[in-house]
């Protein structure tokens, strides 16, 4: 008997909008893994990391952007990093890997006045000379834990728990609405 087929469904059904020059969209089908550094095998972990990414594990608030494999890496805990993007080829290189892809919802927000919208919910200092392109911070917005990552001059990615995706989207959308 034929088995049923399961459909993948993104948390916000690919939401996208543009309000007053600020665009906001869900980044769908994102792949995230966490990798943890073993307590007693620092050297091996670093060596594997350098082999894969050509440099040492980045330290907060700086993230690492790579073309091949196409991914971004940033430190989420003192001994833990998130790899976002092309993760399937690198999973096996590390001992402690956890698939985080489905735990998060990812939004991208961009536009000229993007900071005016973000400052309504983000407690981090986003002055462009302090929070540089490639910087990230794990913090809290509207009582929801989240990660903010600056990917370009006026572009930020926001990650928050997937179960409260709608509340998170509402928070960000309201911020845009309130300042435009």
């Amino acid at each position: 008997m034929a088995k049923p087929t399961l459909q993948s469904r993104s948390r916000l059904a690919g939401f996208a909008t543009e309000i007053g020059g600020i665009s906001l969209r869900e980044i769908c089908d994102i792949s995230i893994i966490s990798i943890a550094k073993p307590l007693h095998d620092h050297a091996l972990f670093d060596q594997n990391f350098i082999e894969l990414f050509n440099q040492a594990p980045p330290l907060a608030p700086t993230s690492l952007r790579l073309k091949s494999p196409n991914c971004r890496v940033f430190q989420t805990q003192i001994d833990q990093w998130f790899v976002i993007g092309e993760t399937n080829t690198i999973q096996d290189k590390f001992d402690y890997v956890t698939d985080q892809s489905d735990g998060w919802v990812a939004l991208e927000i961009s536009g000229e006045n993007v900071i005016l919208a973000l400052e309504r919910i983000c407690p981090i200092d986003l002055h462009t000379d302090k929070f540089l392109i490639g910087h990230f911070a794990r913090t809290m917005m509207e009582h929801m834990g989240c990660i903010i990552l600056r990917t370009d001059t006026q572009t930020y990615q926001l990650f928050s728990a997937s179960s409260s995706a709608e509340s998170f989207l509402h928070a960000v959308e309201t911020s845009i609405h309130n300042v435009t």
Binding site: L39, D102, S163
Partner: peptide, 14 residues
């Protein structure tokens, strides 16, 4: 502090 153990929440992932 000397144990090799790593935690991460996966509540929302499954």
């Amino acid at each position: 502090p000397e144990m090799d153990v790593h935690l991460i929440s996966t509540t929302d992932a499954w």
